Structure formats: C-alpha cells, structure tokens
Amino acid sequence: MIFEAKDLKVYYKTKKGFVRAVDGINLSIEKGETVGLVGESGCGKSTFGQAILKILPPATFYGGSLKIENTELIGLNENEMRKIRGKKIGMIFQDPMTSLNPVMKVEKLFFETLKTHEPEITEEASRERTARVLEKVGIEPERMKEYSFQFSGGMRQRVMIALALVLNPILVIADEPTTSLDVIVQAQIMNLLNELRREYDMSLILITHDLGVVAEMADKICVMYAGHIVEEAVSEKLYYSPKHPYTELLLKSIPNTNIDDLDLKYIPGSPPDLLRPPVGCRFAPRCPYKKKICEVKEPPIFNVDGTKVKCWLYGGVKEW
C-alpha cells in the first residue's frame, strides 16, 4: 500500500461556520492501482484531491490522517510539502489554460519543476528530460520552445500530464483531466493516461463526474456524496451490482441509447447544505428506501459481498 487516508476531515472556515467538504474519508491505494472517485458537483471530490497535496486555502481545517509511503502529510509544513509535491505526488488539474504560466515557455516550466527537486540539474539535462517526457505524451520536442497558449486544448493537457510525470511520482491525481475537451480528444487523453500508468507503474486517482470514463480505467470506484464515500467496490461489481441507493440512482441517470427506454431519469431533490448537514444519513432526504433510523443516526460502513457501503439497508435494522 502506497497511500492511505484515515478518517480524513477537510473543513472550510466561513463566516457562518465550517463547511464539511470532506468528512471522515477512509481510502487505501496499492502500487499501480487506479481508483476512480465519482459523484455530483460539490460532493468533495476535488477537495479530497487537493487536500492530499495541501494546496487548499489557509483557512482550512484538516483532521485524521494522510500517508504516502508511511509518511504522514497532515503535520508537514510548507517546505516539507514542497519536497513531496511533484516528486512523490503529481497533479493534473482540470483546466490546463489556467494552470500553465502563459508567459513562460514550456521548457522553462519543466526546468523550474526539475530544479526545485534536483538543484544540481543543468539546463541541458533538463531539456533532455523534457524532450523524453514530451515524446511520451505525443508532443514533438521542438515545441518546448513555445508558450502554452500556442497549444490546442488537448496538447495543453498533454503538457500537464508530462509535467506531472517528469519526476516519476508514485501517485498521480487527475482532477477531471478531460472536462474542457471534446469527446475524441477525451478518449485520446484517457488512453494516454492508462498507457503511461502501466509504463511508469504508478498509482492513479481519477476524479470525475463521468461514470463512463472510470468504467474502463479504474480498478475500483469510490462513490462520494456530501463529503462521504458511500460506496467502494471493484469497477465491474459497482456497475452491475450497486449497493448504495445513491449509486443505483446515479447509474440510472446515465442516458440510455436503448430505443425501448428513452425516458431521462434523475435524482429528485438537492445535495444537503454542508454547513448544516443532516443528523443521520446525508442521502436520506432523497432516498427512496429510507428508514426511520436513516434520519436520526449516521450509518457505519458495512461490508457486503466485498463492497464497502455506508447504508442502513445492510445493517439488519427491521423498521422501515
């Protein structure tokens, strides 16, 4: 196991109180494993990814434990975290246009990244490393002399992937890496990520709201709702035998191309206010199977046929 989160809490401080964006997450990742993190907007997916790198605003509360190769991250200061970012944990952000400095040539972006972790590296050695990694992602080395704004959206995302891989990290977090791209380029980027993951033998956290994207890539999928992981299972099991009502409804909401079933399905209601989340199960107000206990007591994690599910349906509670 190369990564572990135990009872991780990430709260944003506001004038009205704390927003419980991530509220008690447990997750472990093995070497070479791809984990898909899915859920509606605002469920805490991106907060979880950024919390691992500790790049959230200063007025943020952290609780629990975050470990990379048995190194505890929660207590590390900024200087110590800089040694971890890039070297052990890489990040591919949603929008490469706002993540890449438009006034710096691509080779300079790579040189600064390499120089931070390898102070003795020369510009010539940096250019050689940059050329190799750019070739891996399908970009001609000559283009390192250009600025990021001279690249198309798909090419900018390839540069972001190369930047994340240049230091050969053991874990890469891809935060909705294909959001701003068209469908054809999305498929190319996801295939590229999958190939590079195998080649570099790295672990990958794939954060997305697109269930179709994680279906082919992820070894296991974690479904997030209102700051909690409500279901964790291997990909095939989650798709063909979902256990949590939210997962079931989420899968049903995917448009169906079957001519006999063209009705669009949706989940009634809205996610809860994380300033004042429900006392019991956070999905209870929208759940078609809720029991009385769901409204008064938060469910623990139950292990059902190898699936971890946070739902009272599997707690042996009789009253409905």
Results as ranks from 00 to 15, higher is better:
Lys108Ser: 13
Thr122Ser: 15
Cys222Ile: 02
Met91Ser: 11
Val133Met: 07
Ile267Tyr: 00
Met155Leu: 13
Cys43Ala: 15
Ser235Leu: 02
Leu56Arg: 11
Tyr147Gly: 04
Met97Thr: 12
Asp175Phe: 11
Val317Met: 06
Cys281His: 01
Pro96Lys: 10
Lys220Leu: 05
Glu4Ser: 14
Gln94Tyr: 11
Leu262Ala: 10
Lys16Arg: 14
Glu319Ile: 05
Asp273Ala: 12
Ile139Met: 08
Ile189Gly: 04
Thr247Tyr: 01
Glu128Tyr: 06
Val213Tyr: 01
Thr208Tyr: 05
Asn194Tyr: 10
Asp7Thr: 05
Arg276His: 14
Ile2Phe: 04
Asn70Ala: 12
Ser253Tyr: 01
Leu313Thr: 08
Gly39Val: 06
Arg82Lys: 14
Leu165Tyr: 02
Lys308Thr: 04
Tyr240Gln: 13
Gly90Cys: 09
Val10Met: 05
Thr208Ser: 11
Pro255Gln: 12
Ile173Lys: 08
Thr307Trp: 00
Gly154Asp: 00
Tyr246Asn: 03
Arg276Lys: 15
Ala215Phe: 08
Ile267Cys: 04
Lys220Ile: 03
Val234Asp: 14
Tyr147Gln: 01
Tyr240His: 14
Glu124Met: 06
Lys290Pro: 01
Arg158Cys: 05
Ile55Ala: 09
Ser203Gln: 06
Lys243Asp: 01
Val223Ser: 05
Leu251Phe: 02
Ser126Arg: 06
Pro288Val: 04
Gln150Asp: 00
Gly42Thr: 12
Met81Arg: 09
Pro96Met: 08
Asp210Met: 07
Met224Tyr: 01
Ser253Ile: 04
Gly212Pro: 00
Ile92Pro: 01
Lys54Phe: 07
Glu216Lys: 13
Asn101Lys: 07
Lys310Pro: 03
Ser270Thr: 11
Glu123Gln: 14
Cys43Thr: 13
Met81Trp: 04
Asn168His: 13
Pro57Met: 11
Pro299Cys: 08
Cys222His: 07
Glu80Ser: 13
Gly154Cys: 08
Pro242Leu: 03
Ala131Cys: 11
Val19Lys: 04
Asp175Lys: 12
Ile55Asn: 10
Leu27Phe: 04
Lys136Asn: 12
Val185Met: 07
Glu4Asn: 12
Leu100Gln: 02
Ala187Gln: 10
Leu275His: 15
Lys6Val: 06
Pro278Ser: 04
Ala187Leu: 09
Thr208Glu: 00
Asp261Tyr: 07
Thr179Asp: 01
Glu40Trp: 02
Glu146Lys: 14
Ser180Pro: 03
Phe111Met: 07
Ile207Ala: 11
Ala131Trp: 09
Gly32Phe: 02
Ala5Gly: 12
Trp312Leu: 09
Leu193Arg: 07
Met217Val: 14
Ile68Leu: 15
Arg276Val: 10
Leu27Ser: 05
Met202Leu: 15
Gly75Phe: 07
Ile267Thr: 00
Thr178Phe: 05
Val185Pro: 01
Ala187Phe: 01
Lys265Ile: 00
